[in-house]
């Protein structure tokens, strides 16, 4: 009985350990919850979009028929999750070869700061390994013109708006050239 108990316990631990290890390392992980929320007031949570969600899940939920113009190439300046998007959108609708556009070069700092405020006010925030350096963590703002929710062929543009700040917005908010 003791040997059987030991075998059963050890086997359960090994199987559970394997599943946990695979869950943590081998499969996509977005986020499980929002941390560090600044308020629990319902109106502020809703109005200021205090709840976080990853860009991937937001794309899946709200831009199912969209085109992801320039998420970049993972490992070469692109979002770490960019190749996951191929499963849903296909190669025709995800421009992995198109790099993320850095808005800091083409706009003055005041314009950028003002635009970042709009992104913070209207968008969902999440954190992700920085496309320019996966060892560091960056904030990603995800926002879109709500009138275009679930619009077929809506184009989502990836931009850099700060040293550690990126965004994904629809092309009514930012215009860049190119096709997927």
């Amino acid at each position: 009985m003791r040997k059987q108990t030991l075998v059963f316990t050890v086997t359960s631990l090994i199987v559970a350990g394997l599943a946990v290890a695979l869950n943590l390392v081998a499969f996509p992980r977005d986020m499980a919850l929002t941390r560090g929320i600044s308020s629990f007031a319902s109106s502020e949570v809703v109005g200021q979009k205090l709840w976080n969600e990853s860009p991937v899940q937001l794309l899946y939920t709200f831009m199912g028929g969209g085109i992801i113009l320039n998420p970049g190439t993972p490992g070469d300046g692109g979002f770490i999750f960019a190749d996951r998007l191929l499963l849903k959108y296909g190669e025709d609708r995800v421009g992995l070869e198109n790099p993320i556009v850095d808005l800091r070069g083409s706009n003055n700092s005041e314009e950028i700061a003002s635009f970042r405020d709009i992104l913070r006010d209207t968008g969902y925030e999440s954190v992700t390994p920085c496309p320019h350096d996966y060892q560091q963590t960056c904030t990603v703002y995800f926002t879109w013109n709500r009138d275009r929710t679930k619009e077929q062929d809506i184009v989502m543009v990836s931009i850099r708006v700060g040293e550690f700040e990126y965004a994904m917005v629809d092309d009514s908010l930012v215009q860049v050239g190119g096709t997927p």
């Binding site: 986020m31 499980a32 919850l33 929002t34 941390r35 560090g36 929320i37 600044s38 629990f40 319902s42 949570v45 809703v46 979009k49 205090l50 709840w51 976080n52 969600e53 899940q57 937001l58 939920t61 969902y124």
Partner: peptide, 17 residues
């Protein structure tokens, strides 16, 4: 203390409203 809350979700926001 840790400011923990739900992930962002349209349904959840409707519930809060």
């Amino acid at each position: 203390f840790w400011g923990l809350s739900s992930i962002g979700f349209g349904d959840g926001q409707t519930v809060l409203n």
